[in-house]
């Protein structure tokens, strides 16, 4: 069996994995472990996933199978300012597709891409449950409601100013 060459998970996550292993059905905590890693790093690297497989004693194939199955997990880093356009039904009906196009043309990247300077990335979400304020866009933790395409350049400028 191939050994893990890089052990790079931080101690608190290693500790969490160890605690999970004491529980009944320890392999059922795989998704929770991946959530923690993504929460800290913003994405799941191959090294991290391999280390999880070894520490939690589940096959690597299972870890990558789970990580690729769920939309929430990202397998590459996103921009410093992660733009997420909601494309749920209510947002769609209120014109979220045009908001998405506005971000794409303003940033010069397509959905799923990150700008070359690593500052902005665009992704879509499937309903964050704020339907009554549609269309909504989140940039990192901040939620913008009733967004129109014309507001997009200003939103990007304001984010960029934060550095």
């Amino acid at each position: 069996m191939e050994t893990v060459t890089t052990h790079s998970l931080p101690p608190d996550i290693v500790e969490f994995i160890e605690a999970c292993k004491q529980q009944e059905h320890s392999d059922s905590y795989l998704i929770a472990v991946l959530h923690r890693i993504q929460g800290q790093f913003g994405w799941l690297s191959e090294d991290h996933m391999n280390e999880v497989a070894q520490r939690l004693q589940v096959p690597s194939a299972t870890v990558s199978g789970v990580a690729t199955f769920y939309h929430f997990f990202r397998l590459k880093p996103r921009g410093k300012h992660a733009v997420s356009v909601c494309l749920g039904t209510a947002c769609f009906v209120k014109g979220a597709d045009r908001v998405l196009s506005a971000f794409e043309s303003e940033l010069g990247i397509s959905l799923g891409e990150t700008t070359q300077d690593g500052l902005f990335s665009i992704e879509v979400s499937r309903c964050i449950g704020v339907c009554a304020l549609a269309p909504v866009v989140t940039i990192n933790e901040k939620t913008y409601s009733r967004v129109t395409p014309t507001q997009v350049p200003e939103m990007i400028r304001a984010e960029a100013e934060k550095g």
Partner: peptide
């Protein structure tokens, strides 16, 4: 237990698989 963004997990057997830490 947290989901991870899969609509199909609203289906009960898929949801159970997800709680078990598997693909939903």
């Amino acid at each position: 237990r947290l989901g991870a963004g899969a609509f199909v997990c609203g289906e009960e057997t898929a949801l159970l698989h997800s709680i078990e830490g598997k693909r939903g």
